[in-house]
């Protein structure tokens, strides 16, 4: 068990290191010269040289790389050109808004997805199953940028029921969180339905019924425990996905003051340190989530625990 977790942690650390490296080289391979971007249009060649020196860009690539790693280890990911503040600090100032929206969408996705998935599997072809399958199909197919715009058009502009942008009241959460949770709901519903169907067909479920185990216990303990293994990966994957992927699109549409919108703005303003720290932060979140999933697996499945 300890060996297993230690191995996972080492793999996680290696992944983060690999991404740091890739990010470093990709940003330096890009065509845009950061110095030219930072300088005002009337700057002299002398200014450019000074700035190049200041950021250490005149040094060999490998030296820059080691310095970059050293700084990254200390939590220094450069300074935002736009805000003239540490990039990480800029990111963290905007992160709580993303986390709040992400958590709301996450909780909705898990609650709705799991319950619809389980009920559908227990009662296939029932009313809930049919509706669930329809919603899952829609959720998988409709892109969130389109759903977001349609929501704004219908509930915001036509009906004037909900605020269309910004963050403030509880009502501000409704449209963005619905928009963000549509795809995860579809994913969790479909996966938990199919895993539960498989589990409910298995011999250990028949055996539990033979023993006279009550049906709710058969479903929630015997079947669900087994079905939860594949579902968990998706659930935690979704949590990172929500904070990363959906946030960029949904926050931009609904002008939500989170890191998704920040990274879009920074990208258009060529504020590379912020974009760079966003990519690294996202990696960190994804890797941490995967690490948590691996540890939960070991907790659920004794075959992993006793490896």
């Amino acid at each position: 068990m300890q060996g297993y977790i230690l191995k996972r942690i080492l793999i996680a650390m290696f992944t983060i290191f690999a991404v740091l490296t890739v990010v470093f080289f990709i940003f330096r391979l890009g065509p845009a010269d950061p110095v030219a971007v930072m300088l005002p249009p009337n700057a002299t060649p002398q200014d450019a040289e000074n700035l190049t020196k200041k950021f250490g860009l005149d040094q060999p690539l490998m030296v820059q790389y080691t310095n970059y790693l050293k700084n990254a280890f200390k939590g220094d990911f450069g300074t935002s050109f736009r805000f003239n503040e540490p990039a990480l600090k800029v990111l963290f100032e905007r992160f709580p808004a993303t986390l709040q929206l992400g958590l709301v969408a996450f909780v909705i996705s898990v609650l709705v997805g799991l319950s619809v998935g389980i009920i559908s599997a227990v009662k296939p072809d029932s009313f809930i199953d049919r509706i669930g399958r329809l919603v899952a199909l829609a959720g998988m197919s409709l892109p969130s940028f389109w759903v977001g715009v349609m929501l704004i058009l219908f509930f915001g502009v036509t009906l004037r029921w909900l605020p269309i942008a910004g963050k403030g009241t509880l009502a501000h959460y409704i449209m963005p969180s619905f928009c963000m949770s549509l795809y995860p709901i579809a994913l969790i519903t479909r996966l938990s339905r199919s895993s539960m169907l498989d589990a409910l067909k298995s011999d250990y479920v028949v055996m539990a019924r033979i023993k006279g185990v009550p049906e709710f216990y058969v479903i929630l303990v015997h079947a669900f425990k087994n079905a939860s293994i594949p579902v968990l990966t998706v659930i935690f994957g979704i949590f990172s996905g929500l904070i990363v992927g959906s946030a960029v699109v949904v926050e931009y549409i609904f002008s939500w003051p989170g890191i998704g919108r920040l990274v879009m703005e920074s990208y258009f303003a060529r504020d590379y340190p912020v974009v760079q720290v966003f990519v690294i932060f996202v990696t960190f979140v994804v890797v941490t989530m995967n690490l948590i999933v691996d540890i939960i697996y070991a907790y659920i499945d004794p075959r992993i625990r006793y490896q």
């Binding site: 298995s202 011999d203 250990y204 055996m207 539990a208 015997h222 425990k225 087994n226």
Partner: peptide, 10 residues
């Protein structure tokens, strides 16, 4: 088949 008739997680 005892291998599949028992729940591997309990």
């Amino acid at each position: 088949d005892p291998m599949v008739a028992m729940n591997q997680l309990l």
